[in-house]
Simulated assay, not measured.
Amino acid sequence: MADLSFYVSPLSEEIREEGRAEGRAEGRAAGRAEGRAEARAENILIVLGARRIDVAHAIREKITTCRDPEILRGWLLRSAVVATAEEIFGSL
């Protein structure tokens, strides 16, 4: 019979706890990044709305589903100067 004592040893429990802690940290980081992306997308829509620029459903969806922070940053900057919502998607 195989020796399974390692799986219940303090060392194995420490290794598992380190893995759980890493997983929690990664999950928190992913959650923060997701929150920042959502906030940036919302800010784009707020700026366009404040400027009374109509935003079609397809454009709104493209903005709110994007998760790339650099793309969203570029769109946010452009939202302050474009004449139409479509123009925020020009080459960065």
Rank of each mutant, 00 (worst) to 15 (best):
S5I: 02
F6I: 09
V8C: 12
S9K: 04
P10G: 01
L11N: 04
L11Q: 14
L11S: 04
E13Q: 15
E14Q: 06
E14P: 00
I15N: 09
I15D: 06
I15Y: 03
I15K: 06
R16G: 10
E17Y: 04
G19H: 07
R20N: 13
A21L: 15
A21S: 13
E22V: 13
G23W: 04
R24C: 05
A25M: 06
E26W: 06
G27V: 11
R28T: 05
R28C: 02
A29I: 13
R32F: 11
R32K: 13
R32E: 08
E34F: 08
G35K: 04
R36C: 10
A37P: 01
A37G: 07
A37L: 11
E38C: 07
A39G: 10
R40K: 07
R40H: 00
N43D: 11
I46H: 02
I46G: 00
I46K: 11
V47K: 12
V47I: 15
L48Q: 03
L48C: 08
G49F: 03
A50I: 00
R52N: 14
R52H: 10
I53R: 08
I53Q: 06
D54L: 08
D54A: 05
T65R: 12
C66Q: 05
R67L: 08
R67K: 15
E70R: 08
E70G: 07
I71S: 06
I71Q: 05
R73K: 14
G74V: 15
G74D: 15
W75K: 07
W75T: 00
L76K: 03
L76N: 09
L77Y: 02
R78F: 08
A80K: 12
V81A: 11
V82Y: 01
A83Y: 00
A83T: 07
A83M: 07
E86N: 10
E87A: 14
E87G: 12
I88H: 04
F89E: 05
S91R: 15
S91H: 10
L92D: 02
